[in-house]
Write a protein that binds this DNA or RNA. Structure first.
Lengths: 99, 99
DNA sequence: TCATTATTTCGGTAATTAACGAAATACAGA
DNA sequence: TCTGTATTTCGTTAATTACCGAAATAATGA
């Protein structure tokens, strides 16, 4: 999970994931959208693949990248974890401030 | 939001937040829990403060750190955003796989 | 096999970051 | 004002990272 936060700490990598939200794309298509060299992007792809945030599938000469939503769901649980165990702290009555 | 992911990309900073989940702590108390120099921790505190992930309040010679849950909630929304806009993608019937 | 297209690896540079200890600052109390 | 405690700032070093272009690899089709 440590690595997932690290992967998301890069603006460029978040842009890649954002592109993949709407549809699967090849490395080249992603490169056309972002103003970053292809070799640099390849490095970002490696980081995203290492965390399983993206999954690849080769189709002939191109490689298709797609978002792996299950890892994002795990991330979601980790962020929720940052909020849990709050019950033991004093609650000054600020719960549900307005409906 | 970019900065929040960056703040969370550090293991040490996540440890700090984890400690603050259960109760507010002073810089010194946090330093006692983690095996990192106080000056190093001070740098981490600056990062966490810059993103509003923690809030400080001086009490005499000590400074109390507390978790700012509202920023975590914003983060939660951002992670959910990584999942949204998925509706337009083909769904191969894998929704609600069980139940 | 050769040429073409797509992608990655390699080598190098500049910027950022975490870490440390020492010195500086902030506050409380004698 | 002086002392002690708490925390931050400063100066430095080592490690990591993003970036680029050139070269290498992979796959296709002629």
């Amino acid at each position: 999970m440590s690595d997932v936060f690290n992967a998301l700490s890069s603006q460029t990598r978040r842009q890649i994931l954002s592109l993949l939200k709407s549809r699967d794309m090849t490395a080249g298509e992603i490169a056309d959208e972002l103003s970053v060299g292809k070799s640099t992007l390849s490095g970002h792809f490696n980081v995203l693949k290492a965390t399983d945030l993206v999954v690849t599938e080769r189709q002939g000469t191109t490689i298709n990248y797609s978002l792996n939503t299950s890892v994002v769901e795990d991330l979601l649980a980790a962020v929720v974890g940052l909020l849990s165990s709050q019950e033991e702290k004093e609650t000054k009555g600020e719960n549900d401030p307005a409906i």
